[in-house]
Design a protein around this nucleic acid. Structure first.
Lengths: 175, 175
DNA sequence: CGCTACTTTCACAAACTTGTGAAGTTAAGG
DNA sequence: CCTTAACTTCACAAGTTTGTGAAAGTAGCG
C-alpha cells in the first residue's frame, strides 16, 4: 500500500521506514506523553523528532507530517525549548530553522527535574513550620521533604549508572 | 484575622497548626502539583490530606476546608483512588466515608509508575519495528526503550534504599 | 536596497475541562 | 419499612486551553 514513494526522496527504500507505521507510532507515543501531562502538540512534535533519522526536522517538515499550521509548530517548539527538551539551530546559509532533540536527551530532561524537586522541598519545609514540627502532619510532611531530597541525591547516581549501562548495549555511537 | 479558636476543638492549641498558615501551605503545595500535571481539585484534596493530623478526612471536612461542593470532592476522590494515591474507608457504624492517604505514600505512587513505564516501553519497542531496527531513528528509539527498562529496574532498589534511609531519620514511627 | 522565504505574534473560534446545583441512589437507624 | 444522612451522577454554565488564519516581523539573496 501506499505512500512509500515520495518523489524527490533519494535514499531509496523508505526514508524513515513505512510512513503510515511511523505516523502510527508517533501518534501512539505522543498520546502517552499527553496523558502524562504534556501539551498535545508539544508531545506530537517531540515524538516526530524522536522518530526522525536526523533527530531534527524543520518547521515545514513538522507542519506537513503532523498536518498542523506553522503557528502550532511555533507554539509547541517554544514550549519544548523552554523545557530544555529541544534545541533550535539555524542552517548556515538558509532561512530555515531546524529543531533538534538534544543528544543527551534523558540527561537534559532529568537535569531540569531536580530544580522541580528543590522547589517542592522548599514548599514542604515551610509547611512543616506551619503545621508545627511535632504534630503528626508536620512529621509526615517533613518525611515527604526528606524523600524529595533523597530523590534529588539519587538522581545523580542514577544517570551515571545509566551512562555506564548504555555502553553495554550495542546501539552504536550517539547520533 | 486569627481563627485559631474553633469552638468544639478539644486538643487545645491549634488542632492542625495555625489554620491560615496551613491553608496557605495546602494551596501552595497543591499549586505545585497542579503545575506538574495533576487536576486542580485532586491536588488540593491530596494536599489537604497530607496536611491533616490523621492523614484522613471525611468528605464533609474536605468540602468545608477547601470551600468546594460535595460533587467536586467526589470527582477528586475518584481520580485519586483510581491513581492509587488515596484509599476509601467507611467508619463502621456510620454513613461517612473517610479518605485516607496511604501510609506508604510514595511507595504506592511509585509502584504505579512502573506500569506506566512498561506501557511506554511497549510502545517504543513497537516503534523500533516500524522504523526499522537499523535506522538511526530505530536505534534511538531502542535506546529510549532501554532507558525505560533501566529506570524500571532502578526503581526497586531506589525504594529499598529510601526505606533504609528513612530509618536513619528521627521522624518517629509511621502514622 | 528591496524581494521573498521563513517564522512569530495576535485575535478569535472551537473544543475541552472544571465545578456547581439538583436529582437520584444507597444504606444506617429508628 | 420509612426516614434521613451521605455519597454519586447528571446536565449545564463558566472558564481555559488549543489551534487557526492573517498580519507583522526577520533575514538571506539577488
Amino acid at each position: 500500500m501506499s505512500a512509500t514513494k515520495d518523489g524527490d526522496s533519494d535514499t531509496g527504500a523508505g526514508r524513515d521506514g513505512d510512513e503510515a507505521a511511523v505516523s502510527r507510532f508517533v501518534e501512539r507515543f505522543a498520546a502517552e506523553m499527553t496523558e502524562a501531562g504534556m501539551q498535545r502538540m508539544a508531545s506530537r512534535v517531540f515524538a516526530s523528532l524522536l522518530a526522525s533519522d536526523e533527530s531534527a526536522l524543520t518547521s515545514a517538515e513538522l507542519s506537513e507530517r503532523l498536518q498542523i499550521s506553522p503557528a502550532a509548530v511555533s507554539g509547541a517548539v517554544r514550549y519544548l525549548t523552554q523545557a530544555g527538551m529541544v534545541g533550535r539551530e539555524r542552517e548556515p546559509g538558509s532561512r530555515r530553522d531546524r529543531y533538534r532533540l538534544h543528544n543527551d536527551l534523558w540527561f537534559e530532561t532529568f537535569t531540569r527535574r531536580d530544580q522541580l524537586l528543590a522547589r517542592w522541598e522548599k514548599v514542604l519545609r515551610d509547611g512543616v513550620e506551619s503545621l508545627g514540627p511535632d504534630s503528626p502532619a508536620g512529621l509526615r510532611i517533613a518525611e515527604t521533604a526528606a524523600f524529595m531530597q533523597f530523590l534529588d541525591s539519587e538522581l545523580k547516581g542514577l544517570m551515571t549508572r545509566w551512562h555506564a549501562h548504555r555502553e553495554t548495549l550495542d546501539l552504536g555511537p550517539r547520533t
